[in-house]
Structure formats: C-alpha cells, structure tokens
Write a protein that binds this DNA or RNA. Structure first.
Lengths: 218, 218
DNA sequence: TAGATTGTTAATCGATTAACAATC
DNA sequence: TAGATTGTTAATCGATTAACAATC
C-alpha cells in the first residue's frame, strides 16, 4: 500500500519543508553519501533533528533505529510523496517576459510536467517560436485543453485578466494553477492553486531591509 | 516618533501578510472607498477580523473605535512599514531568461528600488541592451557596487555560482539579496535574504495535486 | 550485547481566535 | 446617549522542541 495515499491532513508547514529536504537529499545522493542521521542532516540544514524526524514520520517510518536514513531510499520516497512519479500536462498562459522565461528556464519535464503549449492574447506574439513550440492565440485554449488533457495552467498574464481566464480554464477541465498574477484567483476549492507573488516577496525584502536599518540605528 | 522604528520582534508570519493587506487596501483606495472595518476586510480577504486587528496592532493603533480604518491612512502607514518611502539601489546579477524577464517586468522603481545595472559572466551577453541599460561583465561588479552604493542584488544565476557570488558581493558592501538561485546562501546573519525558490513552489503544487487526486479516489 | 538513533509521546512555545471592555 | 468597532486580554489551537522508550 502506498504510503502517500494514507497521508492526509498534513499541515502546509510540513509540505513547504519537503522540497528543501528533497534538495539536500539529492545533493547527498549525488555525493554518494549512503546514510545520514537526523542529527547530521539537522546541522547541514540548520533545523532541529526533532523537526526532521517529526516531518518524515508524518508519512511513515523511513529510517532505522541505530542507523539513520538511507539517502537513496529517503530521496525516492520523498520524491513519491511530492508526486514526481506522476505525469501531468501543462500549458503556459501569457507569453510575456515572465511566461517566456519560465518556458525556457524551468525544467518542467524533470518533475513530471509535460509542457504542451503556450498562449497569449497579443497577436504580435502569435506564431513566435519559444523553445520548440509556437505561441497560440487564446481562442485555441478550449480545444487545446480538452484535446490534450491539460490539467495544469501556469498563469503569467496581468492581474486584470487572470481571474476571468482562470475561471474559463476551470470550465475546460484545468485542475491546478501555478499563478504568477498578482491577484487572488476565484476558483472552486477543489482546484489547486500555488501562487508566486513576486511583488509580495519584494515587499517582504523591503520590510526586512528597513527593519535591519532601524535596528542598527539604535 | 515613527511607529515602524518601535516595531521589533514582529513574527515573519505577520510580515508575510502585510503585502496582501497592502494590495487589498490599494484596490479599495483606487475604488475611492474611504473607510473599512476589520469585519468587512475579513470577508473580502477570507481571514478572521481578529487576525487583521492583531496584525495591525503590532505596529500601532491605526483605527478608530466605532468607525473602523481610514483606507488612505492605513494604506500609507502600511506602505511606510514596508519601507516603500525609502530608496535603495539594486542590480541584477545573471542576465539569462529570468534575469532579463525581471529587468523588463518588475516595476522596481514603484517600490523605491532604483535599478542601476545588470551583469552576466557570459561574454555573448555583454553589451546587450536590456530595458535602458547594457549587460556588463562580472569584472565590473566591484567598482560598480562601490561607486553606486548598491545595497541590493537580485541573484538570477545558476546555483553552482550563487553562493560564491553572494559572498563576493557582501565583500563589496551589498546588504540584501533577492535570491532566485536554487540554493541556500551562506552570508552573515546581518545580511537580509529573501529567496524565491521556483522549483520548491512547483514541487508544492505537485504535492497538492497528488493529494487531491488521492483524496478523490477514496 | 552495547551503542546509536529512530519513532513517538509529552512539554513548551508561539500563533490564531474569541471575548469584551474601552472609546469614538 | 446608543451603537459600532477598535484595541487588547484571555482562551484555544497548532506547531515545534525535548525527552526517552523502543529497537536495530
């Protein structure tokens, strides 16, 4: 029985830490480290060993008393928990600066996401070659999403159109959004939304710089 | 006495919510809404009114009993808390897809960040015009950072070089990083780091899609 | 077997929500 | 003054850390 199927009610705090564990384990794996204890990992990652053990044990016992964790095994298991063994079909909606950058830069395939198409409302971009595909007009969305079983849309469109486009895409069968538009989407709760609000991140940076400067003055 | 100077030991959970408050208040302001109660705002933002009042009161009393909050005033105050009234000098290090996209797409100036230069180690990019500036070689970094009082560096370089480049930049006087490299920087604790790990965000999306699919099966 | 380290329970800490007195 | 809504204290909830028995 797959362990991740049992996994429910895991807090988003835990989920947010999984990619970082996965990254460190990947590096250890690449360095041919065979085993690691929660203590060693805690020193590398600057978190408590207790938290590491609690986090892993949300999904089952991956370690062995007196020995620690097998790096390869743990890496694979966390990969499965993160769903990297499943494949999904993805499109990018919005072929502006950010949309093009993500198309070129993100290694979607490596994470099981098949990048199938890119769309924009701007006629000037239609037919432009990005990576190995051509920017399509928004009018193609409905048939394309339905014909290609698209389940994920990356939204790199302005906030003025994002809410409406998201609703439209849900109508065509899209199940999840990676949202870069600076707005909160209004979609049914069974739709998964992961937002990257770059402006919010920049404001956080601004706050923390200021706080540091003020502290220094005292 | 400025309120934000008193503000200390505010949890990052609160800070993370400030940009969203700021966004909603900006929209209310643009719609010429004059006053709002924590109750009304809580319905708009889908958070508790209690949390809103607690969050604001970390920084001082911005409201008025029996009346609510003046939208314009509150917007300005949160702007000040976020440090938008201060100016900073910023460079982008890494002129690949993402660096170029951020240069073109982020409205740095609107948030008090003056975008002063962009750098890359790739000779082919040197001299390329991006927005209104030319990509410079990494060799220029030291003199440029020192001569232009650069305090913030946006890192859009591969993880293999990010740690070393960050350390180098700290040596030249950079005080803060907006880090897009998929690695944890190793800088002194007085240096502010705000990381945007796009891959981690994508993995979180992957996890949540999977979880939903598994739930549906049951 | 002895030593090491997990898995898990219990204790602590911090963040969120509820309640209500203060006051505009 | 009466009604509304904040500011703030108290109660609850959840997440993190500590401790240790289980066990490899």
């Amino acid at each position: 029985m797959d362990k991740e199927i049992d996994a429910k009610n895991i807090s988003q705090a835990v989920i947010s830490r999984l990619p970082r564990y996965f990254r460190y384990l990947g590096e250890l794996k690449d360095s041919n480290v065979e085993r690691i204890s929660s203590q060693e990992l805690s020193e590398m990652m600057k978190v408590t060993a207790s938290q590491i053990r609690q986090d892993f044990n949300n999904f089952g016992g991956f370690g062995q008393q007196g020995y620690g964790y097998r790096v390869n095994y743990l890496y694979d298991e966390i990969g499965k928990i993160l769903g990297l063994n499943k494949t999904h079909h993805l499109i990018i909606v919005g072929a502006g600066n950010l949309g093009q950058a993500l198309a070129n830069y993100m290694n979607f395939e490596r994470r099981g996401f098949h990048f199938k198409g890119i769309f924009d409302s701007n006629e000037q971009l239609h037919g432009k070659k990005i990576r190995d595909m051509y920017v399509q007009p928004m009018e193609n969305l409905e048939s394309f999403v339905k014909d290609n079983d698209i389940d994920i849309a990356v939204l790199t469109i302005p906030k003025t159109s994002a809410v409406a486009v998201a609703e439209e895409l849900v109508g065509y069968g899209v199940k999840a959004f990676w949202n870069f538009a600076h707005v909160d989407l209004n979609v049914p709760k069974e739709i998964v939304v992961e937002s990257v609000h770059l402006s919010d991140s920049l404001l956080k940076l601004s706050y923390n710089i200021n706080r540091k400067e003020n502290e220094d003055e005292e």
